[in-house]
């Protein structure tokens, strides 16, 4: 009996215990993604048209923020202190002073905006409205803005938007500064 047991021991196969392979933990990855998601949601813009900010323009601050119309086709007008850039093609139409002093420049701007407005109304459905987005520097005089607004409305732009930076506290800061 004893000898039988000893033979069994000899023939017994000894298997090495296979350690369980731990799966990669994606919990940390999920945490990181959640954080990124929070920032993305914070920064997301629901505007149908992306308005690029210009480094050379010092935007005014506003408390209010009007949403762009749902069915709006936009033509940007960027008024720098030294130049006026029109349209998505960023065409240079000279300096703001030219807008007042040169009849040719004024007519060229009017003609360009008219072509753009006509293209919007001809190529789109009836409900679409042509909108002008004016991005101008804080220190531009209003006579240039008025002229652009006048030209824009005369060629068929029904809505004019002014690009600003949203700052709910600008009035409070003004209050503190004036004390």
């Amino acid at each position: 009996m004893e000898s039988k047991n000893s033979s069994n021991r000899k023939t017994r196969r000894v298997r090495r215990k296979v350690e369980d392979v731990k799966g990669l933990s994606i919990t940390s990855l999920l945490d990181v993604l959640t954080i990124i998601l929070v920032f993305l949601i914070k920064n997301v813009s629901t505007e149908s048209v992306k308005i690029s900010t210009e480094k050379d323009i010092n935007y005014p601050s506003t408390i209010t923020n009007d949403l762009l119309m749902e069915k709006a086709e936009v033509t940007p007008v960027k008024i720098f202190t030294d130049r006026i850039i029109l349209g998505n093609e960023s065409l240079n139409f000279g300096s703001p002073q030219d807008l007042l002093l040169s009849t040719d420049k004024r007519k060229a701007i009017q003609q360009y905006l008219k072509v753009e407005a006509d293209a919007i109304y001809n190529n789109s459905s009836e409900e679409v409205e042509a909108c002008l987005i004016v991005q101008a520097d804080n220190n531009i005089q209003c006579e240039y803005i008025s002229e652009i607004v006048k030209i824009g409305t005369s060629v068929g732009y029904t809505r004019i938007y002014f690009a600003t930076l949203e700052d709910p506290d600008w009035l409070k800061n003004t209050n503190v500064a004036s004390r």
Binding site: T53, T62, D66, I133, F162, L165, E166
Partner: peptide, 11 residues
Amino acid sequence: SQVALVALNFS
């Protein structure tokens, strides 16, 4: 910094 809009209606 987020670009906001101030609208004027000339319709």
